[in-house]
Each structure stands twice: as structure tokens, then as C-alpha cells.
Amino acid sequence: MNRQLLKKSEELFYRVLMIISTAIIIIALLAIIISILVKGLPSLSWSMITQIPKGGYYFGKEGGILNAIIGSLYLSGGATLLALGVSLPLALYMNVHKLKQKNVVNIIRFFLDLLWGVPSIVYGAFGFTLMVLLGLRTSLLAGILTVTLFIIPIMVRSMDEVLKTVPRGLLESAFSLGSTRSETAFRVMLRQCIPGIITAILLAFGRAIGDAAAVLFTAGYTDYIPTSLSQPTATLPLSVFFQLSSPIPEVQNRAYASAVVLTVIVLIISIASRGFSIKYQKNRIK
């Protein structure tokens, strides 16, 4: 009887701990979002998001964060497009062309996982070395290239996860109708997985827009909106990072406003990608 009680209370004890730790995770998320909103919303205004900083981003009290918003969109948009050009073919290659060679696919997956694990600051340092070697200066182009390298593994792996679920019968029927491998890949596989592919693209875009370490060395920072690829560009994460360390409250407000904008963009991406993956689940052929 006593032992029974002990067993029961042990289970109860751990169940309480489990609920507490689940609650901690939810509370942590809420704390992050609420604290960012509380700090940043008061300083977020129309002029904040439609003006570039006046009198320098570090000392000027006037102006807003338009340079960072546009810069970030350019940078992550460009990087996502470039990465798509590499990731989609590779993901299809793994799941159509090399369908039968399991070890080739496993090697690629292993390399991708390895690359995914490499910290973005290492990509940043590598990009910087490359820049010095090629004689480039900090620019939008250098930033885009570095971020592209950084998000390729993320994009390929998430596309791969989707393409993996396509039943083999679909491929076999496409082949048996006489379509070539690339036709099967782009016209059958791709069409079947469009929502999942879009999820992967959004995920990579979110990573690109949120990463600060890779662009710190390569994209530079400026008060202006870049007009060509060879100019440096401001980005939202660095806008937070640089302006938060300023002693001037007005400048700090710009940092908090950038944080809110960044959080909102990431939340929208997260919700949108969830929507697409639900859509994929519905249309999926089993």
C-alpha cells in the first residue's frame, strides 16, 4: 500500500514538473513578445517607418528606420532568390534523380546538416576573408552572397523533408508515361509540393532577415537606402544592435522600433508558413 502511494506520488511529482516546464516555454515566448512590444510600440510611428535616420544613425535624434527595413528586404530577398536557384534543383536532384542511390542522398543530407550547424558568424568571417581576397568592400552584394551560403542548407533540408513524403508511385507513373527526369522533377514533384516548397522558402527568408552575425562583416551599415549592389546597406538586426548601444534615448527608441518591426515580420512569416504547410497536408497524395 505504502509502495503504491510512493509510486503514485512520484508520478504526480514529475507530472507537475512537466507541466511547469511546458508552462515555462510558453511564458518565455510571451515574455519575449510582450517585452519587445511594450518597449517598442510607443516609439513606433508612421514617421519612424517612412524616414531614414537624420544626422547619422548613432547620434541623430531625428528620423526613422526606413533604411534598415528596405535594406533588410533587399538583402534577404536577394539571398532567398539566389539560394532558391541552388536549393530547389538540389532538393529535386536528391529526390528524383538519385532516388535509388540512397547513400548519395544520405551523404548530401549529412553535409547539409553539417553546414546547417555551422554558426552564422563563421559564414560572416569566411565571407569577409573572401571579400578581402577579391578586393570588395562591404556591400549589399557581399551581404547577399554570404547570407545565401548561410541559408542554402536550411532551404534544401526543409524542401527535402517535403519532397521525401511524395509517394514513389507518383514518380513511377510519371516515368512510365515517358517523361524525362527533369520533367518529372519540375512538372510533377514541384507542382505536387508547391505549398511545402513555399514554406521552405519562407523559413529561409525568416532566417535571412533575422541573422545579424553574417551581415555584420559583409553588408556594413549606412544611413541611406542602397541604390546599387556595390553600396553598403543597413539591416534590421544591426539597426537594433548598433542603435541600442547608443546613450541617446531617441536613438535607442529607433532600436526598439526596429525590434518590433523585425518581430512582426518574423511572426507574419511564421503564421504564413504554417498556413501553407496546413494547405500542403490537405492536398497531399498518400
Binding site: 515566448l29 525568416g206 541573422d211 518581430t263 511564421s270
Partner: peptide, 8 residues
Amino acid sequence: LAGIPSVI
């Protein structure tokens, strides 16, 4: 939580 940028 996984998607929130590290600067945030």
C-alpha cells in the same frame, strides 16, 4: 520561438 531572430 525557433524563428525569433537572435538579436530580439
